[in-house]
């Protein structure tokens, strides 16, 4: 593969995703409003109900808003990853996915371009959210905004590879409601995004086990630690592994089909 051709291709995919993103300002706003509602309304309601003891990576008692902020960052990435899968099903129904796959460049590379482009667009939304979160006193250390960047990028790749994988399985646009019910909500609620896992363990062992095997839990923890300048190695390895598995399966799903419909 010619490197300069690959670079121009990546630029083209990124520009297209960016142009589509700025065309859909309402998508940006809803991506921002959703986690802000959780942060402001949900957190206010549950602050009293959920006492948070001192847990890593925090070195003092924290507010509930501070606890759920990393999970909400990941929620933005989760919704965007799934939204990109929706747009790919739409692209496939509309035929524009064919345009991408008609490129002479290798398909795994094309899909990777699409994933990275989606991930980079998602990051702008996460940082916009973190800025807004300052208003409710969610103030990670300044260096945290920098150290969180690679973690957020990896999580964005994890979730866009999952989206890509799902788009190979969803045959019709209408099935996206199923993705909401069977992927987004279970992934988000069965994780450490809204409550620490020990709380879940106290409540129910089964639910705790489900949380503990959910890759999203590790994505949230990776971001939580990175936002405070720390590395959670277990979370990093699991997130990396899950990203590699989802990406490989998604690439396999986009190979030319041997037996058609």
């Amino acid at each position: 593969m010619n490197l300069s051709a690959a670079w121009h291709c990546f630029q083209g995919v990124l520009i297209r995703e960016f142009l589509r993103f700025i065309q859909q300002r309402s998508r940006f706003l809803s991506a921002l409003v959703r986690p802000l509602l959780w942060l402001v309304v949900f957190a206010a309601g549950f602050r009293a109900a959920l006492g948070i003891s001192i847990i890593q990576p925090y070195d003092t008692y924290i507010t509930y808003e501070t606890y759920i902020a990393p999970g909400l960052c990941c929620m933005i990435l989760l919704f965007n990853g799934m939204q990109s899968s929706l747009s790919m099903v739409y692209d496939r129904e509309m035929g524009s996915m064919r345009v991408l796959l008609m490129s002479p460049l290798p398909r795994p590379f094309l899909l990777l371009c699409k994933m990275v482009a989606t991930a980079l667009i998602s990051l702008t939304q996460v940082y916009a959210f973190l800025l807004a979160a300052l208003l409710v006193d969610v103030e990670p250390p300044l260096i945290g905004y920098v150290t969180a960047l690679p973690a957020l990028l990896l999580v964005a790749l994890l979730l866009s590879s999952l989206g890509l994988l799902l788009s190979t399985q969803i045959k019709q646009l209408e099935n996206f409601a199923g993705v909401m019910n069977f992927v987004i909500f279970p992934m988000f609620f069965l994780s450490s995004a809204l409550y620490p896992l020990w709380k879940m363990q106290e409540a129910n062992d089964w639910l705790y086990t489900l949380c503990a095997i959910n890759p999203f839990t590790y994505a949230v923890e990776l971001v939580r630690f990175a936002l405070y300048g720390q590395l959670n190695t277990t979370a990093l390895l699991i997130t990396l592994g899950a990203t590699a598995i989802f990406t490989s399966l998604a690439v396999l799903g986009f190979r030319p089909r041997k037996s058609g419909r």
């Binding site: 051709a5 690959a6 121009h8 630029q11 083209g12 345009v99």
Partner: peptide, 15 residues
């Protein structure tokens, strides 16, 4: 124009 530039990029053609 944006549609055509996108196609060119997919074929490795610079802007």
């Amino acid at each position: 124009k944006q549609n055509l530039y996108y196609h060119a990029a997919l074929h490795g053609i610079s802007r």
